[in-house]
């Protein structure tokens, strides 16, 4: 093992494959166990320095539009934060998805509060399923901190500063979520420390050995 923390092309391919398997399994489990039909498409993953995330994300989304960012920390050998970004308005779409659970929630609560809470629940489910499956394939077990919604705002403002440790690595997965036939666009990315990236490289290596 070297101290080189850049991910090689081969390693990126393996990671891509793991993501494909993980997301497929996550979707199947979500449907079977909690009856949420979700399509998770995983196009190309990208690895970059957290410092470059802002520029990358600006290229991916309309900076003048409002977004909601849900952050959730995960702790295992692989540790860091998962971020899920939705265009604003997604929360309203998702409220009906959690449907029956929410009826008992109070009518008195403001619509925007309900929307935030819904984003957190959905974020928790998605991040839990995706991160859980990826780490499971890499024979790691993670625990999670509670999700938080970083306030709705213009993408420019939210992503501009201080959200990520610039020395961390980011693994970006641009994912189109399709819930119960409702199209909701989302972007999922994981930001992990250098120690975690070193572990990830070893784990990818171990993962490949089972096929050799």
């Amino acid at each position: 093992m070297t101290d080189d923390l850049t991910i090689s092309e081969e390693e990126a391919d393996i990671l891509q494959e793991i993501m494909n398997i993980a997301f497929g399994k996550a979707a199947a489990d979500l449907a079977e166990i909690i009856n949420i039909m979700v399509n998770l498409s995983v196009p190309k993953i990208a690895m970059l320095q957290a410092a470059d995330l802002h520029g990358y994300l600006m290229g991916e989304m309309d900076g003048s539009q409002g977004i909601s960012v849900i952050e959730q920390g995960f702790w295992g050998e692989f540790r860091g934060s998962a971020f899920l970004i939705f265009q604003s308005g997604a929360g309203k779409e998702l409220i009906s998805m959690l449907g029956s659970d929410m009826e008992s929630a109070f009518e008195a609560e403001a619509a925007d509060v309900l929307e935030r809470e819904t984003l957190m629940e959905v974020g928790n489910i998605l991040i839990g399923a995706c991160v859980g499956k990826v780490t499971e394939l890499l024979q790691d077990v993670v625990t999670y901190s509670p999700p938080r919604v970083i306030v709705e705002n213009k993408a420019d403002d939210v992503l501009a500063d201080g959200l990520f440790d610039p020395t961390y690595m980011a693994i970006v997965l641009k994912t189109l979520f399709c819930f119960n036939e409702r199209n909701v666009n989302g972007l999922l990315f994981l930001v992990a420390s250098q120690e975690s990236i070193a572990w990830l490289k070893r784990a990818l290596c171990v993962f490949m050995e089972q096929y050799e």
């Binding site: 659970d101 839990g128 499971e136 999670y144 509670p146």
Partner: peptide
């Protein structure tokens, strides 16, 4: 999944 679930007071 080994997921965590959070039951917020608000919801």
């Amino acid at each position: 999944f080994g997921n965590f679930s959070f039951f917020s007071q608000k919801l």
